[in-house]
Design a protein around this nucleic acid. Structure first.
Length: 812
RNA sequence: GCCGGAGUGGCGAAAUGGGUAGACGCAAGGGACUUAAAAUCCCUCGGGGUAUCAACUCCAUGCCGGUUCGAGUCCGGCCUCCGGCACCA
């Protein structure tokens, strides 16, 4: 809809060119004096950016520009997370090559960044899909391989049938594929892993040092790592001449163990079962673990010896025991574990109560709380908490157990049966087995002359030029690994690459990376709380162990902004913006109709940035109105002549101005852009009222407008640069110091003191700012609307007095 | 089930260390301007009651209770919603 407004269509491109031509955000990383590193999570080039993406980048740009006006010069780079499955899917659908599709998207999205007026040091642009970048994924992989931290393992992997690839544990969300939502299946496959579990303890400990991370992200990661302290206990199976070790966090319940249960894929499972049960075992192995499944088991021919009593207990194979956690075997204590209870009840296995308390175990469900030991030999009567230590110590003396720490986190599966990713630099030699490529042969280049054929396998497997390679060790004709790496590998170290983006002899220059890292402020979406942020932390720890860097944690301060949502006609609900939900708002349209500054202002005004917020087309109009009003005031000020004497109205406006500077500055420091904008709006409302007066001070009006232009610049950079120039100043506002306020001028001459009687608001009085406690109390006593409530009543205590704010009379 | 987070007007929200609840904006209603509309500007805007008009008063921050002179804010117990994990022994 056409509206009368300032000419943003001319102003915005003008300033975008101005900033670009002067490379205003360029930083020389070779001279790291007063280093400061701000970073927005780089995007996947999926096509077009929508206003939901905008929140991240607009927020980051406002912070960046604010820092600039505070005299800092942050490093603020941008790049592209440009390997990934959507490129292949698009290739299938439209017949384009993933590379061409990706490059087109990058060009388009770069144009959109530009149109938002966000500033990056584009000289440092990084793309993960080029050999100059991904060769260092390969180099890193080889270092990890040499240290045994990258390994090939056989495990029940998560398979997404729609994406035709395996997924990391972290990429399975609620049993479905993180990307497409398809239900994930279990498949026993040999795949490449990074041994992130070797870093579990350090990744956990490191969380304590991340004081400037949102607590909920830290909690999410802590739970994901899932540290448990307990005891490993060895149960002998004499007839098989084997020992089964179990892990338990409840060694205090050891005397209540009435059976052992092993995972169906436990190494001993096949030898334990009766020969006729093999089909049952196979069936159990195929069934995906699912808590809606009933617990069931296969009894075995064997019994195990209780390590302390020597009593015999049966050994079962049970569907609810996970091979991936602990030792893949458990001791079952039905009286004190609900799962064990359900299983025991079903199969008539004895239930022995060993942790006693009145109202404790009642035979209908497991009792899992505190209590004292019973039926536990010499431990009887001991509080169970103490018994955990005592029984573990006893087992250690007997050589049948030891204290143990286990983690829920699993190794990171990085193989992907896809084309558009980093080739894993491994060659399978018929004599030497899997051999890593020689470092001087890197990069193993991803061939571009392939035909994408959909889920019918990876095109690399039918590309002879890629597939056939000599063994790096013995030279024998061999076959290359055709799987590519999870794209989270790419994003796990890109923040280091920005420091020396064109370095071709190493991942990066260590001295400069040590000088510039960790990132001082990292801004991105909460959806990466586990995946990206955990992997990046892991890489950073590993890089230090490789001697590449001297720091362990990559991101000092993390800010996670909420999603922009909008009602979806497809689902009928509020949803995160996405093409499939049909609720995308295009920045191009907003910028065309209202300007980028309006989109920016509205995006920052929509609510607290860490919370989700619903996009409102009406709200955009409010932001637009405000900027137009500012523009209008500025035009009138330019015409204004005359200088009124400074009186009470002038003092009031000046006071409001200085209070606003104070308020807005505090709000910027805490990223509370919504309240900063509200404060500036209040100031402009006061200005508008002042402006109605017949006699006005042009110099004061000019001062207010000039200051507002500065305060608003980080949020609405184009219109403010234009007005700054109109006022006769040299651009750019980026170089203009942030306004400071005068505490004297900000101080109120009179303050409002609230008068309460028994905590109820009864009146408000105006007193001079300089009034003493006694004067204020006296004035409060006489406050006309409060006095009736005081009449004839005795004070029950000294009046409560909050200096210059409140008086509360407590009467009988 | 476990672990987080959040519940304040019609809506987005504000209240920074317990001290005037609802700033700022959106929507809505009324008015001015206009041939008319758009745009712009002005006024009203949590609920009830007594009033009649510049007033007074009670209630109100998911629910119940507590601490306090005073609670949106602190404590205890519930309810609802959102996110994460989910047979992790």
């Amino acid at each position: 809809m056409p509206r009368r407004s300032y000419d943003f269509q001319a102003i915005e491109p003008k300033w975008q060119r101005w900033w670009k031509e002067r490379r205003v955000a360029a930083v020389n990383t070779a001279a790291p004096a007063d280093k400061f590193y701000t970073l927005m999570m780089f995007p996947y080039p999926s096509g077009k950016l929508h206003v939901g993406h905008g929140r991240n980048y607009i927020l980051g740009d406002a912070v960046y520009r604010y820092f600039r006006m505070r005299g800092r010069r942050p490093l603020n780079p941008m790049g592209w997370d440009s390997f990934g499955l959507p490129a292949e899917n698009a290739a299938l659908k439209r017949g384009s090559h993933p590379h061409a599709w990706t490059m087109e998207n990058i060009a388009e999205m770069k144009r959109q960044f530009h149109a938002w007026g966000v500033l990056y040091d584009w000289d440092r642009e990084v793309m993960t899909c080029v050999p100059e970048y991904y060769r260092w994924n390969q180099w890193f992989f080889i270092q990890m391989f040499k240290k045994g931290l990258a390994y090939r393992g056989l495990a029940n992997a998560n398979w997404c049938p729609s994406c035709a690839t395996v997924l990391a544990n972290e990429q399975v969300v609620g049993g479905g594929c993180e990307r497409c939502g398809t239900a994930v299946e279990g498949r026993l496959l040999e795949q490449w892993y990074f041994r992130i579990t070797a870093y579990a303890e350090r990744l956990l400990q490191g969380l304590d040092r991340l004081r400037q991370w949102p607590e909920r992200v830290v909690t999410l990661q802590r739970n994901w790592i899932g540290r448990s302290e307990g005891t490993d206990i060895a149960f002998e199976i004499p007839d098989l001449k084997e020992t089964v070790t179990v892990f338990t966090t409840r060694p205090d319940t050891l005397f209540g163990a009435t059976y052992l249960a092993l995972a169906p894929d436990h190494p001993l499972a096949e030898r334990l079962i009766r020969p006729g049960d093999l089909a049952e075992l196979q069936k159990m192995r195929l069934r995906k673990q699912d808590d809606t499944d009933e617990k069931w088991g296969i009894p075995t021919r064997f019994e195990a010896l209780h390590p302390l009593t020597g009593g015999r207990i049966p050994v079962w194979i049970a569907n609810f025991v996970l091979m991936e956690y602990g030792t893949g075997a458990i001791m079952s204590v039905p009286a004190h574990d609900q799962r064990d209870f359900e299983f025991a009840t079903r199969y008539g296995i004895p239930i022995v109560e060993v942790i006693h308390r009145d109202g404790g175990f009642d035979g209908t469900a497991a009792y899992t709380e505190e209590g004292t030991l019973a039926r536990s030999g010499k431990f009887d009567g001991m509080p169970n908490d103490e018994a955990k230590r005592a029984i573990t110590a006893e087992l250690e003396r007997a050589g049948k157990g030891k204290g143990s720490v286990r983690y829920k986190i699993r190794d990171w599966l990085i193989s992907r049966q896809r084309y558009w990713g980093t080739p894993i630099p491994i060659v399978y030699c018929p004599s030497c087995g899997p051999v890593s490529e020689k470092e001087e042969h890197l990069p193993v280049v991803l061939p571009t002359d392939v035909a994408i054929q959909g889920s019918r396998g990876n095109p690399l497997a039918s590309h002879p030029g890629f597939l056939n390679a000599p063994c790096p060790k013995c030279g024998k004709a061999s076959r290359r690994e055709t799987d590519t790496m999870d794209t989270f590998v790419d994003s796990s170290w890109y923040f280091c690459r920005y420091i020396t983006p064109r370095e071709d002899g190493a991942m990066f220059r260590s001295d400069l990376v040590n000088a510039w890292l960790p990132v001082d402020l990292y801004i991105g979406g909460i959806e990466h709380a586990i995946l990206h942020l955990l992997y990046a932390r892991f890489f950073t720890h590993a890089l230090r162990d490789l001697g590449m860097t001297d720091f362990e944690e990559p991101f000092k301060q993390l800010f996670t902004q909420g999603m922009i949502t909008k009602h979806s006609e497809v689902t009928g609900k509020l949803e995160k913006m996405s093409k499939s939900k049909g609720n995308v708002v295009a920045p191009d349209d907003i910028i065309r109709d209202h300007g980028a500054d309006t989109e920016r202002l509205y995006t920052l005004f929509i609510g607290p940035p860490e919370k989700d917020a619903e996009w409102s087309d009406q709200g955009v109009l409010g932001a637009s109105r405000f900027l137009n009003r500012l523009w209008q005031f500025a035009q009138e000020a330019a015409e204004a002549a005359g200088e009124a004497e400074h009186g009470a109205d002038e003092a009031a406006l000046a006071r409001k101005l200085h209070q606003t500077i104070k308020k807005v500055t505090g709000d910027y420091e805490r990223f509370h852009f919504n309240t900063a904008i509200a404060a500036i709006m209040e100031l402009m409302n006061a200005y508008g009222r002042y402006h109605e007066r017949p006699a006005r001070s042009a110099s004061l009006e000019r001062e207010v407008l000039t200051t507002v232009v500065k305060l608003l610049h980080p949020m609405a950079p184009h219109v403010t640069e234009e007005l700054w120039e109109q006022f006769g100043n040299e651009p750019s506002l980026l170089e203009v110091p942030w306004p400071s306020y005068s505490p004297d001028l900000a101080k109120e001459e009179t303050v409002t003191v609230v008068v309460q009687v028994n905590g109820k608001l009864r009146d408000q009085i105006q007193v001079p700012e300089s009034a003493s406690r006694e004067e204020i109390l006296e004035a409060a006593r006489q406050a006309p609307r409060a006095a009736p409530f005081l009449e004839g009543k005795a004070l029950r205590r000294e009046p409560v007095y909050v200096p210059k704010k409140l008086v509360n009379f407590v009467v009988g």
